[in-house]
């Protein structure tokens, strides 16, 4: 935004004040996320910068909290770090267990949400779809309804149908997380389908392709970027979800957010900050992926950036 030539001094002054205000707001947005990174390397169990840290003294920094993440819950954390130590960590360390659970739950709920969501988005984006508005409102509602209400409802429903006796581990949490991820899949995939040229499917049908073949050979490659970003949204939703897990998850179904939640409520230690740092790095990676996918999708669909 360039300042016009005819601006008077007052406007000039305001322009620079405005830029400073914007910079401060951006700082407000980003600082809380960045501040945990250096603090997670604090050598002391404090949540603030020690004098040594400010002087950039190497003694002020350590990786002890990352080490604690690895060893917390191990049977023999102090043994020599050979292969049996690593096996111990893999099998017993609480945070590693939580990561495993989070990945399993996230993976299956993402598959479920993405499959059902993409098929439904194909239907929803057709002009013939009956009662489109009402159905769309129902499908998006898991994003709007307060999470505590969803969790409470599922708690009663699952105990009523006795889902924990079905013998399928994680089933309740996976179904719930799929439900919570579906709105994101619907929104991203229908957005991709808005610019979709339906004469392509007609052309495919004209050349003798059946609907399944048309979908996989013509539609799917074009909407794939949208589907993948929807899937990433669904995965992040599950990976970050704590309330439903607290209400319906079994005792052995500890996930990363649940472990964090317990850590924050009981005795918050800088180990939480090291988890937070790792999660921030993951979200930076995911954001980059989604951004690249969005550009690719725009290129594929021939939409020029606004």
């Amino acid at each position: 935004m360039a300042l016009p030539k005819y601006a008077d001094p007052l406007e000039r002054a305001w322009h620079y004040i405005y830029l400073v205000i914007c910079a401060l707001i951006f700082l407000f947005l980003i600082a809380p996320i960045l501040v945990v990174m250096p603090l997670s390397f604090n050598a002391e169990p404090y949540f603030t910068f020690t004098e040594k840290m400010l002087k950039l003294d190497p003694d002020g920094y350590s990786t002890r909290w990352y080490d604690l993440l690895l060893t917390f819950g191990m049977q023999e954390p102090d043994a020599v770090r050979d292969s049996s130590w690593w096996a111990d960590a893999w099998n017993n360390a609480h945070w590693i267990q939580a990561t495993k659970n989070s990945v399993i739950i996230g993976f299956f709920s993402t598959i479920l949400a993405t499959t059902l969501g993409t098929i439904a988005a194909l239907g929803l984006s057709r002009s013939e779809m009956p009662a489109r508005r009402a159905i769309m409102a129902i499908l998006i509602s898991p994003m709007i309804v307060p999470i505590i209400i969803t969790a409470t409802g599922l708690f009663f429903f699952y105990s009523w149908i006795g889902i924990q006796n079905w013998g399928i581990p994680y089933l309740g949490v996976v179904l719930a997380h799929a439900t919570l991820g579906i709105p994101f899949v619907i929104i991203t995939v229908t957005a991709t389908l808005v610019g979709f040229d339906h004469s392509l499917t007609r052309a495919a049908a004209n050349m003798g392709a059946n609907p399944t073949r048309t979908f996989f050979k013509v539609q799917m490659p074009l909407i794939l970027p949208g589907v993948i970003s929807g899937a990433l949204f669904a995965f992040v939703t599950s990976f970050d979800e704590v309330v439903v897990v607290l209400f319906v998850g079994g005792l052995d179904e500890q996930t990363i957010p649940r472990q964090m939640w317990n850590g924050i409520r009981e005795q918050i230690s800088p180990a939480i900050l090291s988890v937070a740092t790792i999660l921030v790095i993951i979200s930076i990676a995911l954001l980059t992926t989604v951004e690249l996918l969005r550009r690719r999708s725009e290129k594929l669909r021939g939409v020029t950036p606004r």
Binding site: L116, G117, I119, A120, L122, G123, L124, R126, E128, M129, P130, I135, I138, L139, S141, P142, V145, I149, T150, T152, G153, L154, F156, F157, Y158, W160, L175, A176, A178, T179, I182
Partner: peptide, 26 residues
């Protein structure tokens, strides 16, 4: 119309069972 609706039906049923019904019951 039927074809469009059939595409949406699995998800709609899923949401009705795993989301709307539990909240209604609660």
């Amino acid at each position: 119309k039927r074809r469009a609706f059939l595409l949406v039906l699995p998800l709609l049923a899923f949401i009705l069972i795993t989301f709307v019904a539990p909240i209604g019951q609660m």
